Computed example of a mutant assay.
Amino acid sequence: MGTVWCVAAHTHDGIDWTSRLASLRRAAELDADAIRVIARRLVRTLPDNPTVVDVGCGGGGMAVALVESLTARGGGTVVLVDAVPEVLDAAATAARSAATYENDTPTTTVRVRPVLADLAAERPADIAGPAHLVWASRVVHHLPDQRQAVADLADALAPGGWLALGEGGLESRCLPWDLGIGEPGLQDRLAHARAEWFVRMRESMPDSVRLPAGWNTVLTDVGLVDVTAFSYLVDHPAPAKPAVREWAVRQVEWLAEVGADRLHAADRHALTRLLDPDDAAYLGRRDDVFLLSAGTVHLGRKP
């Protein structure tokens, strides 16, 4: 649901994010209301004309929300950082479309600056700092050395600036307990298979370093103060609108792909039916799919 860090077409995590761009944009649309609330909360205490950095801008949802929030308080600069050109271009286009033009001139109250960069190889402070706010949602866990990545993001902050990490929360859910085909509880088994895939993904990542601590501990360890967190809910209940059904189909497709070798044959058969537009069980036509997830944002301030 949210923004994802990308560091090449096939990234350090081996994921082809370019092929997932449509899914990222669809998720950004469904998360938009929650993300707007977060953006307003994060920018309201910043100084006038602040610089805000969106690291791993993904579908552009937070980029748009940051532009809107900065416009409402008088302007600023939004720096978008990603290393997949197609992803960066999509986010920049969305952000620029949200910028307010003054007197129909090309001067905007919010400047949008896209930066193509791999933060596993380049220092954020050199390409985007000093920043009054750095937003990094579901980004750091895709980088080889997560603690070092957080330290590098903290270095990009101006004194008094805030680092906001969107990490953790609760797994997105979209399926009822009993779908009428296969064994009940398919969503839980998909979540378990995804967790196993994630462990393997991290283990197979070149130069991967484990992070045996919570994000609040990491923020404190890298020298940030006033460390805290809050959580937010994304809730699109059944009966689902078409956009939610489309999201659910693509989400289950992805879960089936990454968990294929960890699922029982009966579950794989059920998934084939759920993802087949010609099958009566097709998710895209069901009124009982939904979207429910909870994300957590961890905050720390540079002294």
Rank of each mutant, 00 (worst) to 15 (best):
T105S: 12
T105C: 01
P106V: 04
P106F: 08
T107V: 14
T107G: 10
T107Y: 13
T108N: 06
T109R: 14
T109H: 12
T109E: 08
T109Q: 10
T109V: 11
V110C: 04
V110Y: 03
V110M: 10
R111G: 11
R111P: 03
R111C: 06
R111L: 12
V112Q: 06
V112F: 09
V112A: 09
V112R: 05
R113E: 15
R113W: 09
R113F: 05
R113L: 15
R113N: 11
P114A: 04
P114F: 05
V115R: 09
V115H: 10
L116S: 15
L116G: 11
L116I: 09
A117Y: 07
A117T: 12
A117E: 05
A117F: 10
A117D: 05
D118A: 01
D118I: 04
D118Y: 03
D118G: 02
D118Q: 04
D118N: 13
L119N: 06
L119A: 07
L119T: 11
A120S: 15
A120V: 00
A120L: 00
A121V: 08
A121R: 15
A121T: 10
A121P: 00
E122M: 09
R123I: 01
A125S: 15
D126K: 11
D126I: 00
I127L: 14
I127F: 05
I127C: 03
A128V: 02
A128H: 02
A128Q: 02
G129I: 05
G129C: 06
G129A: 07
G129K: 07
A131I: 02
A131G: 03
A131W: 01
L133T: 07
L133S: 08
L133R: 09
L133W: 12
V134L: 11
V134I: 13
V134R: 05
W135K: 02
W135A: 10
W135E: 07
A136D: 00
A136N: 01
S137K: 08
S137L: 01
S137I: 00
R138C: 13
R138A: 13
R138W: 15
R138P: 01
R138G: 13
V139G: 09
V140F: 06
V140L: 08
V140E: 07
V140P: 05
V140R: 06
V140H: 04
V140M: 08
H141A: 13
H141I: 14
H142K: 11
H142M: 10
H142R: 14
L143S: 02
P144Q: 14
